[in-house]
């Protein structure tokens, strides 16, 4: 996974949520249908896609999907 577009694709494919690029900057409570199980699903998929371990405490600090992407790719 190299770009934020790859990330949006992964969101749609892995989570089955109808999310677009416009959603990734929203805070999680404004993302339609978002919940803690989706978080787990996404983090697991991100670890698989990036080959990097993600720390849950770090992930929980992320206020939006965009920030979560940054945590996942180590930026």
């Amino acid at each position: 996974m190299n770009t934020i577009d790859d990330f949006v694709t992964l969101l749609r494919d892995e989570l089955g949520l109808p999310l677009g690029a416009e959603d990734i900057g929203r805070s999680f409570d404004q993302v339609e249908g978002w919940d803690s199980v989706h978080l787990l699903h996404l983090l697991t998929a991100l670890e698989h896609a990036t080959g990097r371990r993600i720390s849950l405490p770090d992930a929980l600090e992320a206020p939006s999907l965009e920030h979560l992407y940054a945590v996942a790719v180590g930026r």
Partner: peptide
């Protein structure tokens, strides 16, 4: 992985 275990504990 450990992430899953942490998630179960947390949520």
């Amino acid at each position: 992985d450990p992430l899953w275990e942490q998630w179960v504990d947390a949520f």
